[in-house]
Amino acid sequence: MKLAVFGGTGLIGSQVVEILNAVGHEAVPHAQSTGVDVISGQGLDEVMAGSDVIVNLTNSPTFDEASLGFFQTSMDNLLAAGRKGGVGHFVILSIVGVDQVPELDYYRAKVLQEDILTAGPIPYSIVRSTQFMEFIDAILSWTADGETVRLPPTPIQPIASKDVARAVAEVAVGTPLRGIRNIAGPEVFALDELGRITLSHKGDNRAVVTDPTAGMFSVVKGDVLTDKDAHLAPTRYADWLS
């Protein structure tokens, strides 16, 4: 099976390509660095020729309102080129609970991406993931100063990127779901608790202050970041830290 992996040089995409090629598929990574641009459309028709599956792992360069335009244009271009090339399956990676947080521009943009895909002409699969373990340091940095890190007690169920990549690869070579598969890590933490665990492991003496108004995840309420019906990945956070 030949798969065109857009965003194929990034954190998830590079691992998806490696996994698929290791089991005998032909997964080809595409990105601006390889001469393919999902916004201008450069190179899309050429790389779709002979491809069976599109795996779209590209991401907006910003998390603000401009992300809506990124996903609108990129999905329109990919769907048009994929239909022209006769692609039979289109896979995207999204976020668990993304449709429950309209306050965030980026989450609304990801919902738009899902809606464009489901209304499009190509059979599809959506993999929704909880937050990556690899992103925890970035989350801590958003509300950090010299002595403290302020974090809300929002529940979070982090997943290792390698487990995300395996799930995406599995879905990509399967029958189109025409729906959503939720994936998550095996443990639920309060985000402030996860911050303390992370800083302690790194020998970082800054204090974590519980602040329900701090950072992007302060607007995420209840169990939006978790999913009781999700496929649970095996990697525990302590093992990933080690």
Rank of each mutant, 00 (worst) to 15 (best):
T143F: 03
L79P: 05
I156K: 03
Y237W: 12
D37K: 09
L241N: 03
L177H: 04
K110M: 15
V23E: 15
N21E: 13
V53E: 01
I19M: 09
T34E: 04
L241F: 05
R108V: 14
Y107E: 13
T118S: 11
V16Q: 10
R166V: 14
F71H: 14
A184N: 11
Y237E: 06
T213Y: 14
M48V: 13
P155K: 09
T9N: 12
P234T: 12
V53C: 05
G7I: 00
L225W: 02
A49W: 05
V208R: 00
V87H: 04
L11Y: 14
P29F: 07
D115W: 07
F63K: 07
G185N: 04
E147P: 00
A109F: 10
P176C: 01
S14T: 03
G174A: 06
S129V: 02
R108G: 10
P152F: 06
D37A: 08
T154H: 05
V98P: 06
W240L: 09
G35Q: 02
K2V: 15
T58L: 01
T226M: 06
M216F: 14
V16F: 07
V96C: 10
D37R: 06
L68E: 11
D64F: 00
V220F: 05
V164Y: 01
F70I: 11
K110E: 12
I126N: 04
Q15M: 11
H25V: 02
L177N: 00
D145S: 02
A144Y: 12
G120F: 13
K84W: 03
L20I: 10
A238V: 15
